[in-house]
């Protein structure tokens, strides 16, 4: 059962993500901002992280850097709704900092699942 950490400050969106991942038999962990995510990060039970980028108390970029530091094999997907400070740049930056995939809000849950499946597949050596 893969463990997923959802870092999102929008309560309703976080709830929706929690439900949809629970349905897919993920172990779901939640954090409502970057600081909590970093502080309470459990590397042993977290395989994948979905993080918003623009949040109060440490943004998603910090989350990506800190968690990658603690667990280099962690898979991270950054999600952003655009606006405020240039999401295009933010998503690019997230990629540059090590996010494995980026999604703009709103996104298709189905696409997100496909991406996660792909990221969790054991690495192929060919």
């Amino acid at each position: 059962m893969p463990g997923i950490l959802i870092v999102e400050d929008d309560l309703e969106l976080r709830e929706m993500l929690r439900i949809s991942f629970a349905r897919k038999k993920f172990t779901v962990l939640e954090a409502e901002n970057g600081r909590d995510a970093i502080l309470h990060f459990k590397p042993s039970v977290t395989d994948i992280v979905i993080t918003d980028l623009i949040m109060p108390d440490e943004d998603g970029l910090k989350v990506i850097m800190k968690l990658k530091e603690q667990k280099p094999s962690i898979r991270i997907i950054a999600i952003s709704g655009g606006g405020k400070v240039g999401p295009g740049n933010y998503l690019n930056l997230a990629k540059a900092l090590g996010a494995n995939a980026v999604f703009s809000k709103p996104f298709s849950i189905n696409d997100l699942m496909i991406k996660i499946d792909e990221l969790l597949e054991p690495e192929q050596h060919d």
């Binding site: 709830e15 929706m16 849950i109």
Partner: peptide, 12 residues
């Protein structure tokens, strides 16, 4: 930005 959050919830 906020509206996109809401849309994401709805579409989810």
């Amino acid at each position: 930005h906020d509206f996109n959050n809401i849309l994401a919830t709805i579409s989810g």
